[in-house]
Simulated scan of single mutants.
Amino acid sequence: MTRQLTRRALASCAVLVAAGATLAGCGGQNQPSATSSETPAATTSADNSLAALVPDAIRADGKIRIGTDASYAPNEFLDVDGRTVIGMDVELYDAIAGKLGLEVDWVPAQFGDIIPGVQSGKYEAGVSSFTINPEREQQALMISYFNSPIQWVTQKGNPKKVSIDNACGLRIGVQKDTVEVPDLQDRSKKCTDAGKPAITLDQYPGQDTVTSNLVTGKDDAMTADLPIAVYAVKQSQGKLELLGEPYGNAPYGIVVGKDQAKFAEAIQKATQAIIDDGGYDEILRKWGNEKGAITSEQVQVNPSTP
Rank of each mutant, 00 (worst) to 15 (best):
149 P>E: 15
72 Y>A: 12
55 P>Y: 01
115 I>K: 06
75 N>H: 13
84 T>Q: 03
94 D>Q: 11
140 A>S: 08
100 L>E: 00
115 I>Y: 01
153 V>I: 09
148 S>E: 13
72 Y>E: 05
63 K>A: 10
110 Q>C: 10
156 K>G: 11
123 Y>W: 14
83 R>C: 08
115 I>P: 01
125 A>V: 03
76 E>C: 15
158 N>Y: 02
85 V>R: 00
118 V>W: 02
64 I>H: 00
76 E>D: 13
152 W>C: 14
131 T>E: 15
109 A>E: 14
149 P>Y: 04
93 Y>E: 07
151 Q>R: 02
75 N>Q: 14
112 G>F: 15
116 P>E: 02
110 Q>W: 10
115 I>V: 14
88 M>Y: 07
55 P>M: 02
81 D>M: 05
87 G>N: 13
128 S>L: 08
107 V>Q: 12
106 W>A: 02
108 P>C: 10
108 P>D: 13
62 G>K: 00
131 T>R: 15
97 A>W: 01
129 S>N: 07
82 G>Y: 00
142 M>L: 15
108 P>E: 07
105 D>K: 04
114 I>C: 01
85 V>E: 06
87 G>K: 15
136 R>P: 03
78 L>F: 08
62 G>W: 12
126 G>K: 05
59 R>H: 04
108 P>T: 02
125 A>C: 06
133 N>Q: 05
100 L>R: 01
155 Q>L: 11
133 N>G: 09
125 A>W: 02
73 A>Q: 10
98 G>Y: 03
99 K>H: 07
73 A>L: 09
105 D>P: 03
84 T>D: 04
72 Y>P: 00
152 W>N: 11
92 L>T: 11
145 Y>S: 08
135 E>A: 14
118 V>I: 06
111 F>C: 09
136 R>M: 08
137 E>G: 07
55 P>R: 03
113 D>H: 10
76 E>W: 12
56 D>S: 13
105 D>C: 04
97 A>D: 00
68 T>V: 13
66 I>Y: 04
81 D>Y: 04
97 A>F: 06
157 G>W: 06
85 V>T: 12
92 L>K: 01
133 N>D: 13
132 I>P: 01
57 A>V: 15
151 Q>T: 11
102 L>C: 05
60 A>Y: 02
69 D>P: 14
70 A>G: 02
157 G>K: 08
81 D>Q: 12
90 V>L: 09
106 W>M: 03
98 G>C: 03
103 E>G: 10
119 Q>R: 09
64 I>T: 05
